[in-house]
Design a protein around this nucleic acid. Structure first.
Length: 447
RNA sequence: GUGGCUAUAGCUCAGUUGGUUAGAGCGCUGGAUUGUGGUUCCAGAGGUCGCCGGUUCAAAUCCGGUUAGCCACCCCA
């Protein structure tokens, strides 16, 4: 059979894993410094935990896990006869793969509400799964790195999360734009335009502004049934380049003004010019996820054509659906895969992401092979990454291996070396070789 | 879910209006070199041309179907 892996999934080579770990380590280090604590949740959740949280589109993209055993015995016969997949699902699948880390986190908080201290600041770095059709920068299995805080509606956290974005990307050497908006501002626009019921249609259209231009947005809104009068009003409001300009345009919408005020507070906390990357208000930032209610975030890499590499926002009542109302949360996510792809494209990975092999022992015959293996043990005991070629074969072949492994040193052991105790210590880069006692070699390779 | 493109050696790809034995580079194995790699030179192994069917004297090449991958849309990290 031809080996293959499922669509939208990938294997990672040693080099790739090292680079990915570099990203994860950088992100984790910043999370920890801002006082966030790690949790992990299972890959599978009950399907009832996941469905309905990500909108209609999200439900379609959920991976469902088929029940074990004779699942057809308990299947909904009516739905089966009618070939009604949507109706059939609940009777043959009770579990699904997690779609993001925010909803499982909300579930976790509700289940453990009596043991966690609020505000609860947690981070979580785990894979999520979406049954999306794969394309550039989009996979069916990918890692998210989430930081969230629940149990406080202080806007200081919005500011903190923006700083975390700024700091992580500064450390990675990746230039980004951190965009901020507020769902209340968008609601205010809809209200001011008198199309409150078409709020979602409006935001979806606005979100595409930088892609299809104002004309395209107008067309899209018209297609989605928004009256021309409303479109004109919206168009006018979208001209606003700053919060100050926006404010008078939303004067008739208390919700909209509240949103502006929240953003002002966040930017107040942040101060001016204290960030490495641009942190900017963008009235056209919309975001699809239906549970956001306050500030929303999105991060875009500069100089690369790639979707957003991070996003997040405030959700006022995500724990409410699990029976714990009135608890507000806010969080952002780093899309590790896309960050990886962007950094690869811009060649931003440092040279030494790999934990390098320092030396390889080579031997000529069985006796020296055994002797070399005992020397190897001492090197390893001294904390030096080293190995031995598995058999005493031709030197040329052994050296080729050392070369491919990218090890900086080869240690050659023949009968002469074994007798004198002076091993052949060869620098693979310069080709120079000298006879050194094992202790000397350990000294050289340490530090 | 909708549309477009692609599928030939382990990898990246070439293959003319359909025409003898399907090629290149890289990689792999061996040798030049029985105590020394990278560079070079020589030789060798490796292919049901994604799969099924059709047209034809003749198909990698044309047609239909199918599967897989990529890209775009929707949506999203």
């Amino acid at each position: 059979m031809k080996p293959s892996i499922p669509k939208g999934t990938r294997d990672f080579s040693p080099e790739e894993v090292n680079k990915r770990n570099y990203i994860f380590d950088t992100i984790r280090e910043v999370f920890v410094r801002y006082g966030y604590q790690p949790i992990e949740t299972p890959a599978m959740e009950n399907l009832s935990t996941l469905t309905g949280k990500y909108g209609e589109e999200g439900d379609k993209l959920l991976f469902k896990v088929l029940n074990n055993g004779d699942f057809l015995a308990k299947a909904d016969e009516e739905a089966l006869d009618a070939r009604d997949s949507n109706k059939l699902i609940s009777s043959i699948s009770k579990r699904g793969l997690r779609y993001d880390l925010t909803v499982p986190f909300a579930r976790y908080v509700v289940m453990r509400q009596h043991e966690v201290t609020f505000p609860f600041k947690r981070y979580q770095i785990q894979p999520v799964w979406r049954a999306d059709r794969p394309q550039k920068g989009r996979y069916q299995e990918f890692y998210q790195c989430d930081v969230d805080v629940v149990g406080s509606d202080s806007l200081v956290y919005e500011a903190e999360l923006a700083q975390i974005y700024d700091e992580v990307f500064a450390k990675l050497g990746l230039e980004v734009t951190i965009k901020l908006n507020n769902r209340k501002v968008l609601a205010g626009i809809a209200e001011a335009a008198g199309i409150r019921d078409s709020f979602m249609d409006m935001t979806i259209a606005i979100d595409k502004l930088d892609k299809i231009g104002m004309e395209g947005v107008e067309k899209e809104m018209a297609e989605r049934g928004i009256p021309q009068a409303g479109i004109d009003k919206i168009k006018n409001i979208l001209q606003a380049k700053s919060l100050d300009e926006l404010k008078p345009l939303l004067a008739e919408s208390p919700t909209g003004l509240k949103g502006v005020e929240e953003l002002e507070t966040v930017f107040d906390y942040l101060g001016i010019g204290d960030s490495t990357n641009e942190i900017a208000f963008d009235v056209t930032l919309a975001r699809g996820l239906s549970y956001y209610t306050g500030c929303i975030f999105e991060v875009e890499a500069k100089g690369v054509k790639m979707g957003s590499i991070g996003g997040g926002g405030r959700y006022d009542d995500l724990t409410g659906v699990f029976g714990m109302p009135g608890t507000s949360g806010v969080g952002v996510s780093f899309g590790a895969e896309r960050i990886f792809d962007v950094m690869e494209e811009l060649k931003l990975f440092p040279e030494d992401t790999a934990t390098r092999l320092k030396a390889v022992f080579l031997a000529f015959d069985d006796a020296t092979h055994r002797y070399a293996f005992r020397c190897l043990r001492k090197l390893r005991a001294a904390g030096i990454n080293a190995e031995i070629y598995p058999e005493p074969t031709k030197m040329g072949k052994q050296f080729k291996y050392v070369d491919k492994r990218n090890a900086p040193y080869a240690i050659v052991v023949g009968s002469n070396e074994m007798q004198s105790g002076e091993l052949g210590f060869k620098n693979m880069k310069t080709g120079a070789q000298e006879g050194l006692k094992l202790e000397k070699i350990i000294e050289r390779l340490s530090g």
